[in-house]
Write a protein that binds this DNA or RNA. Structure first.
Lengths: 348, 348
DNA sequence: TTTGGTTGTTCAAACGTTTGAACAAAAGTA
DNA sequence: TACTTTTGTTCAAACGTTTGAACAACCAAA
């Protein structure tokens, strides 16, 4: 483990000053081509690698971007990170990741860790638990911040989301088209924006089709299999159970399928199902799950682009204006909702 | 975007010197409790956050660990990263991630990027393409390095792997027990250690059961669905096609299922299948895929622990000795291999 | 020959922190 | 009282870069 060569080693070797070396390396116009060449050669010979921290200290940059997600291993987030990483590494940044485990306290701790690490910008998706956004708001004054998917309403922070309202409408439209009429919704927590919007979209689409909104058809759950199964069991015990479920997450939908099967119901004939997010497994389970694709990779990439732009603008001294990007989601119809016989009688 | 408070701001406010502040903050014994308290209070009041880069420059540390994987969104790697992140953030490190996209050139570029970012240690899993390990070997002289899963043979670098040989044996044992006898293997590239070991385990298990090894039953493919499907098609066209396939990856196995279905074969009755890695989708596809679980999260965590220890030892001046950790894999039997009728006639 | 502009380099300070040495004051010991 | 030890702080240098200002050498123009 030999110690690294520095700019002064190069300078000494060449009999010039460190500042000349620095300028040569960064292509300063006043340095002669001759010295430039000599410096590059010497740098190569000494296996010189610039010291990021020294540079960062001097220039006030770290070259680091933080990405905070609830959990890295959920395919939605993993894919979003992939998309973001590609854009960011292309732009010359390194990516630090952190996970909140959907826990508000840990989320805060991790954000502080990112700040301490001197990140130049942060891309985040909120923990499901988080109801107090003030920390994010304060943060956004200090560091360029882009929220994606799990966001909250605030004109001052940039966000990238899918049009969740439209996605929900598409889901309900599709179910209606397939002849379902008693459509329940397994939602996420309404205070998290995308889930709130999906609930709104659900209600609005019901109204559009002249279907009544029934309070007992709406559940708010954490987006995982177990809560999906539990909620579905309760739905099926209602005096008038639903004939279709629009779930705000594929995990919920998958839980619903399990519960339905357990009750001896056939999907999609007895119960139609649409999920949200188009997780990898949704295409591959049986029955495959109809889902609303939210283009996770594009979302991550888009958030990264937005952040990079924002950082550039912020540097120019002028305030950047928070931007909202809204991607248009796409319904992918699969077995869980495609039934042959379409009963079109609306039971009001 | 107000500029951050520094140690000198605190010093000025309190009428003491920066060095006293620094010492107070780090709990130096010679600083009075009185000043310590005052410093902490002032730090809080000024919203002081230590500047990592200045500290890093002075102390020669960055607090950064790099993780390089072929692709973040493969559930195996995502889960491994999750495991590693938890250990590392616990130990006070930040985690930088990078992906090689299984491309040797990009892999190298990303590694250089990590080095430039001044990481104190690297955890990596090799790109499938990589046949020249010298870069890793050189790297391991400069920076603590732990390889996991996709590794190569070298006594000087620490590795964490699953016992791939044993895993392959378990897979074949299981197929034989289920009554299959013409067992093919869709392997990865043999030069990548785990895949090589799986091939060896496959051969050894065949021998153990008195089954012949047939060259035409062994394919080397990139671990994805398409190559799995292609290889399977060719296997099924053989004059004497296999009645079971042990695939070195669940993606390959899944491709095999698709191909088998396309040919009108029933899994597991006509063709038994065992995969490797126990990906998330394997439990949920239909038929669900029997797979060898390699404890991805534990693997990531284990690699992180090893790295942390190695860095500590390296600091003490004495050379660390490369360690090899081998986790024991577990076969998880599912529909793709559990057939009711066990034909036990061995066709030699 | 003076004046002015290039060109290629050096100088010196700065970024924010840490750390061993130095120092003064207070306290303890003989 | 004189000496040593302890306590609490300051001093100064260092980590590796960058960068505007300063400077010397040269060339060209008037």
């Amino acid at each position: 483990m030999k110690k690294k060569a520095t700019i002064v080693d190069i300078a000494n070797k060449l009999g010039i000053t460190p500042s000349a070396v620095s300028k040569a390396l960064s292509g300063h116009p006043r340095i002669s081509d001759e010295t430039k060449l000599a410096v590059i050669a010497a740098a190569k010979a000494l296996e010189y690698t610039p010291n990021h921290m020294a540079m960062g200290l001097r220039k006030g940059t770290s070259g680091l971007i933080g990405i905070l997600v609830p959990a890295i291993h959920y395919s939605f987030f993993a894919t979003a990170i992939k998309g973001a990483e590609e854009v960011l590494s292309q732009a010359g940044y390194n990516v630090i990741i952190a996970q909140s485990k959907d826990n508000a306290a840990l989320e805060r701790k991790q954000l502080e860790g990112l700040v301490r690490a001197q990140v130049e910008g942060i891309i985040a998706s909120m923990a499901i638990e988080t109801k107090d956004f003030s920390f994010y708001q304060e943060l956004s004054f200090d560091i360029p911040l882009v929220l994606f998917d799990r966001t909250f309403e605030d004109d001052n922070v940039s966000t990238v989301i899918v049009d969740d309202f439209a996605g929900a409408v598409k889901a309900v439209d599709h179910l209606v088209e397939m002849g379902y009429s008693r459509i329940a919704h397994l939602g996420g927590y309404a205070h998290i924006l995308p889930f709130g919007k999906r609930i709104e979209g659900y209600k609005s689409a019901l109204a559009k089709h002249g279907l009544p909104f029934r309070k007992e058809y709406l559940f708010q759950c954490a987006p995982n299999k177990d809560e999906g199964a539990q909620a579905t069991e309760r739905l099926l015990q209602l005096p008038e159970p639903p004939d279709a479920i629009f779930a705000a997450s594929d995990y919920l939908a998958f839980g619903a399928i399990k519960a339905a099967k357990k009750q001896g119901l056939h999907v999609p004939d007895d119960l139609g199902l649409v999920g949200f997010s188009n997780e990898e497994f949704s295409a591959q389970v049986s029955p495959s799950i109809t889902s609303v694709d939210q283009f996770s990779e594009a979302m991550g990439a888009s958030a990264a682009e937005l952040l990079v732009r924002q950082m550039r603008e912020g540097k120019g001294g002028k305030e950047f204006i928070a931007q909202k990007r809204i991607l248009s989601p796409k319904l992918i119809a699969r077995e869980s909702s495609l039934r042959k016989v379409k009963t079109t009688l609306h039971t009001p």
